[in-house]
Design a protein around this nucleic acid. Structure first.
Lengths: 332, 332
DNA sequence: TTGTAAGCGTTATCAG
DNA sequence: CTGATAACGCTTACAA
């Protein structure tokens, strides 16, 4: 390629890059030859010199989860705009796979990473991830030290949802979750309890139901919960699978939503929006999460070590629909 | 690192790779030094020599679509097992972005690609993609020539679904789709018509409704369709958004499912499974699609140019649930 | 402004 | 079995 344009290697390089200190003629010749030959510089060779791969990694527990997938899509769009490609690793919440993916990322010398570990952020994984000093942005997980992070205000969201139900007259509300350890769940649970506390309500009315797997909620346990004499008059379902299970359980017990049971979904999905009755839900912008994460990372990659901000906290909205109503008999 | 182990560069290389022609002692020393230093070979430098990046690209119209995301997850799992990382590009159905992503892939010298273009496979995009002779596996799109491909038997699926509805007594069935050009839709439409033809039914009973965007189905058009005197007694909804729109329209017109209207979803989602009544759906294994695509690509990457097979066709199942019933008044 | 040459971290070739 | 040495395709001093 160098000689096809009749110039030296370095001129080609200069022409293709900054374009600084390059005569118009050479620039023209080079780009002519380049397009004639279909030439594209080799990123690997270039990266070997410049120590940059033009790629960023993205570590998520499950890319098939629509919430994660939407975040990834938004991040990818922004990053590609800036010339980076996105490498994804879906780790299935398995700490072992997380560590091995982190190792792969390191070996590949990725320029930066977006991470949302599935396991609680145990030290080994983090150290592995951040060992090389690669810029990392944490997505909706507990950041340690001063790591840049994109956080969602799940606590305020859950608090608002709980207040809303309390305002409708509910005093026995169950929060169903498949996890109580990772940041989103922890924050929601905290918000849930805060709403009870701030009104000096009997905290016993705030029932926390934790199952190992979302699937479990679809069956026996939820049915049992609803068949209990002192059953909750409202349910907050954390996650699509749990919402589905809850709705099925309500149907199976002959409870009508919202007359007999109010249902509120944390996370707005097709299911929540299209169900009859439409499900009142907590919603936050996944696009914003992905975009903000990309932006924070780009900031670091550009070297703005202390950019405008190193943390973004995104709001959660309560979308009122038809699945919540005052309880038939106000209790408590 | 070379000297940390007290041996030569080449010995390190040999020890870390094949391990062939390496004495036990050296192997030991090298791996000891490697783990002490936290050394990991640089993929870029290695790739520069070996002309391989250990990465494969994945081009999808929309990674946030749960169908695509699930395929990507399965493919990524298999590919990572084999030592490859997955680079994703979500192109939003925009031919321009598709081409630019293809260019990026080329510049990055990816070893192979999994592609499901959103636009119909126009020549420019394809040529761009395959220009370098990089192994490509097509996923659920029309393959040209002898490209390896993973296909889903949408035609047989749609035919089975249509037969099932006809068997229940339906004679006016509407197929709602947001696209009639890409392979999946085309095949489904073909299967739909075949089912009518094979029984010598009035082909006018097979109503094809095509809208530019899935969102459109949520509103006026579907309502109009259902309010028509000669309204269909059954609807086949292609895609989540359309299913949601259909269900909402049914609710708004006071039509009860399945008594007044049978509904069948193409693609099994949370919405279909959790809805009341649960929606009968056409289902195929997205994991199998992803896995098969990865397998086909790996086969090519290993150089088995004519492996056991270069095309996989995956079956579609009809999952019977509660949303279909005989029409109240058999017509036609 | 341009060309020459060194070197990025590996693997591959080829003598020892 | 091992070690020197030359690429791989680029960028970047430095020299012209």
């Amino acid at each position: 390629m160098a000689k096809a344009a009749g110039v030296s290697l370095s001129s080609v390089s200069r022409a293709l890059n900054g374009g600084k200190n390059v005569s118009a003629k050479i620039a023209r010749d080079v780009s002519a030859a380049a397009s004639k030959l279909g030439y594209q510089p080799d990123f690997m060779a270039r990266g070997l010199r410049t120590r940059s791969t033009g790629m960023v990694g993205c570590l998520v527990p499950d890319i098939a989860n629509p919430l994660n997938a939407t975040i990834v899509r938004a991040a990818e769009a922004r990053l590609r705009e800036a010339g980076y490609m996105l490498v994804v690793a879906s780790t299935a919440n398995d700490p072992g796979r997380e560590r091995s993916a982190a190792g792969e990322f390191r070996g590949r010398r990725l320029d930066g990473m977006l991470v949302a570990p599935g396991s609680d952020a145990n030290d080994t994984t983090w150290r592995e991830l951040t060992a090389t000093g690669t810029p990392v942005v944490i997505v909706d997980r507990d950041p340690l030290d001063e790591d840049p992070a994109v956080l969602v205000d799940h606590r305020a969201g859950a608090q608002a949802a709980t207040r809303y139900l309390i305002g409708l007259g509910h005093r026995r509300i169950a929060l169903l979750t498949a996890d109580a350890r990772m940041r989103p769940s922890r924050e929601r649970i905290a918000g849930f309890h805060e709403a009870f506390n701030e009104l000096n309500l009997d905290p016993g009315g705030a029932q926390l139901c934790i199952q190992a797997s979302p699937m479990d909620f679809a069956h026996a346990d939820t049915l049992a919960l609803l068949r209990d004499a002192a059953r909750p008059t409202a349910i907050i379902a954390l996650g699509t699978r749990i919402l589905a299970g809850t709705l099925r359980a309500a149907r199976d017990t002959g409870l009508s939503v919202p007359d007999d049971l109010s249902v509120l979904s944390v996370g707005d999905t097709d299911l929540a929006a299209a169900h009859t009755p439409a499900i009142t839900a907590l919603r936050w912008s996944l696009d914003d999460v992905g975009r903000a994460a990309a932006e924070l990372l780009l900031q670091r990659l550009r070297g703005d070590v202390d950019g405008p901000q190193s943390r973004a906290v995104l709001p959660v909205d309560l979308v009122l629909r038809e699945s919540c109503a005052p309880p038939r008999v106000t209790s408590g």
